[in-house]
């Protein structure tokens, strides 16, 4: 009976319910519990174990359209890196990457870090996988940084000669991670992916083999990371609505499959 009622109405009813569940927590936060994922803890512990001055390579490989999934997570992670006083080298294999890195640096507390000494934004490397291979074989390929400053005068550029000098590599992307794994796996000890939640299931084989040390799964991972950092950031604010709408998705999937099976079995009889 309920199924017949549901099938009578337009899908706009579903849109409306999703919109209500999306907006409701924005006006009235519920504060639903947020269990920690073990891989988020692993990222936190790895960054927490860094010593001041350790070199970390970061690549921003996503477009502004997925800022909410990856940008917020990168903000939280980079904030942690600056707290730990790691030295950070930022590159990008997406043309939008350097601008997004610039935005992150503007929105976090740099803890007194000095540009050129403690961190640098080197810029975009074209060619995607060919660019990755070129950077891995020669990380000092940049003669000027993203802002046009000569890199030869920067103390941080003298801190590394080969890719193996980096203690950790963190990349943020929203596509299959195969190119990053192909070019960086085995070259840097700890590789961490900040990934859009939809590609996480496909990445698990790399986690199981240890080729990818750990990952942050989009905004959900960012919210978990904010809990570990003890801050109530942007990602935490979205989690009530995320839990409600995903629960609705699960309920609708079960109802639709129940209806489908019922119809199929009824037809057979």
């Amino acid at each position: 009976m309920a199924l017949e009622i549901l099938s009578k109405y337009d899908r706009q009813i579903i849109f409306l319910v999703v919109l209500i569940l999306t907006f409701m927590p924005a006006f009235y936060p519920i504060g639903l519990p947020l269990p920690q994922y073990f891989l988020t803890n692993k990222v936190y512990d790895a960054i927490n174990s860094l010593k001041p001055g350790d070199l970390v390579l970061i690549s921003f490989d996503f477009a502004p359209g997925v800022w909410v999934e990856l940008g917020i997570a990168m903000k939280d992670i980079m904030q942690h890196l600056f707290i730990k006083r790691a030295r950070i080298v930022i590159i990008a294999f997406d043309p939008n990457g350097p601008a997004l890195a610039h935005r992150v640096l503007n929105e976090i507390d740099l803890k007194g870090a000095v540009y050129g000494k403690d961190y640098v934004v080197l810029g975009y490397i074209p060619g995607f996988e060919a660019g990755m291979a070129a950077f891995v074989s020669n990380p000092k390929m940049f003669t000027v940084d993203y802002y046009g400053n000569p890199t030869a005068d920067m103390p941080i550029m003298n801190a590394f000669n080969t890719i193996g000098d980096f203690k950790m590599y963190i990349f943020a992307c929203y596509t299959w991670v195969d190119p990053w794994m192909r070019q960086f796996s085995g070259k840097i000890d700890i590789i961490i992916g900040v990934l859009s939640a939809d590609i996480v299931p496909q990445v698990m084989p790399y986690i199981n083999t240890g080729q990818l040390y750990s990952l942050i799964r989009g905004s959900r991972g960012a919210a978990e990371y904010e809990q570990l950092l003890g801050i109530k950031g942007e990602a935490t604010a979205f989690m009530d609505a995320a839990s409600l709408t995903v629960s609705l998705g699960v309920i609708l999937t079960i109802v639709a499959n129940y209806g489908y099976l019922k119809k199929k079995l009824g037809g057979r009889r």
């Binding site: 006006f27 859009s196 989009g218 959900r220 979205f238 995320a242 709408t245 995903v246 998705g249």
Partner: peptide
Amino acid sequence: GSTFGATLYANQIFTIERAAFLA
């Protein structure tokens, strides 16, 4: 199925961020 569930979640977060902005 696992990928579909994760995709549903990942796409929903864009709407949620806009809703938080519009509120």
